[in-house]
């Protein structure tokens, strides 16, 4: 009898407590843009790393779902994806913008906002609402809200800092991954840990990818740089990393730039031209002509352009 009593106690007290604890372990998903922004808040980083923070603010990473400042080309492409893609595809489940869910946006946000995985569909809805308000009406408030969603310090130095998670473990809460181990004087990110990939091209390759993203029900293809880096640069003996050219040699630091930056495009392509005029004889007809020879050499570690 005593045994059954203990068993009952176990069933009614211990088991619910265990289940409650399990549900507490599961990370809560963001229900609003504001909650997602708070979950990935990197504003305290600027207190100590102000130079790096200011560099980053100038980069496209800082407005990864909005696009170039004032222009918002990326936001416009999100709208095109909904209007000409999702709404047009018979099995997508999207007939109107209000039908768009996280899973639909992920074909873009896998790279443009990977943390959207940690948000509920209500956040996808809010994002879509602001995209339409900005693109259709030029709403500045929507533009400002969209620019709060970005690839910031927390994304690269925590969420995406470990790639082989079965090998190295999952990124830990409150840890900033970089080049050192030790204490980190911040109230949220109290520890520093050395990341094995922070200086490696594969870190960037997570988003600046290989080609079609076949993991989606409807694959998208935006960035192909890591593919061309592996198969067209490293395969030919290239040894530099993305970080070497885009952070160090450009001297732009965390203002990682590409085709629109003078620092990068001046170094990326060599152009040699020769030109002269001459008189050609087309059988018997003297024919004035010019010859222009153009040689373009790509000195970057990937194809130009990609996409």
């Amino acid at each position: 009898m005593k045994f059954f009593k203990i068993l009952l106690i176990m069933l009614f007290i211990v088991l619910p407590l265990t289940l409650f604890a399990k549900s507490q372990d599961k990370p809560k998903k963001a229900k609003t843009i504001a909650e997602l922004v708070k979950m990935y808040d990197s504003s305290s980083c600027k207190d100590c790393h102000s130079d790096i923070y200011e560099e980053w603010k100038k980069s496209l990473h800082a407005r990864s779902i909005f696009g170039p400042e004032h222009v918002g080309r990326t936001a416009a492409t999100f709208k095109t994806t909904i209007e000409l893609g999702l709404k047009d595809w018979q099995a997508s489940g999207v007939k109107k913008p209000e039908d768009v869910r996280v899973k639909h946006l992920m074909i873009c946000t896998k790279c443009h906002l990977p943390q959207l995985e940690e948000a509920e569909d209500s956040v996808a809805q809010e994002i879509v609402k602001h995209i339409y308000k900005f693109v259709d009406e030029g709403d500045e408030n929507s533009a400002a809200i969209l620019q709060q969603l970005n690839i910031n310090c927390v994304v690269c130095h925590n969420r995406n800092a470990i790639i082989h998670k079965w090998t190295e473990g999952y990124p830990q809460k409150g840890v900033v991954y970089g080049t050192k181990d030790g204490d980190h004087p911040d109230s949220t990110y109290k520890k520093m840990k050395k990341s094995s990939v922070m200086k490696e091209s594969i870190l960037c390759g997570q988003c600046h990818g290989l080609g079609p993203n076949f993991e989606f029900d409807n694959p998208s293809q935006c960035a192909t740089l890591y593919g061309s880096y592996l198969w067209s640069y490293v395969s030919e003996g290239g040894t530099k990393t993305c970080q070497q050219c885009h952070i160090q040699e450009s001297k732009l630091g965390h203002n990682m730039q590409s085709y629109r930056s003078k620092e990068l495009y001046e170094k990326a392509v060599d152009m040699k031209v020769d030109a002269y005029a001459y008189l050609w004889r087309d059988v018997v007809t003297p024919t004035p002509a010019a010859h222009v020879k153009v040689e373009l050499t790509n000195k970057a570690g990937h194809v130009i352009p990609d996409g």
């Binding site: 492409t77 095109t80 994806t81 000409l84 893609g85 999702l86 074909i107 873009c108 079609p212 409807n218 694959p219 998208s220 293809q221 935006c222 061309s228 067209s232 640069y233 030919e236 003996g237 290239g238 392509v269 005029a277 024919t287 004035p288 002509a289 010019a290 010859h291 222009v292 020879k293 153009v294 040689e295 373009l296 050499t297 790509n298 000195k299 970057a300 570690g301 990937h302 194809v303 130009i304 352009p305 990609d306 996409g307």
Partner: peptide, 30 residues
Amino acid sequence: RGPYEKSGLIRETSLHPNKTKVEKFEIPLY
């Protein structure tokens, strides 16, 4: 048209790393 439709290549005309592309132009001047 856009990233949501792209999944292959029809024609590749990019500049590849450490490769030189040469284009010659003959321009009539008459």
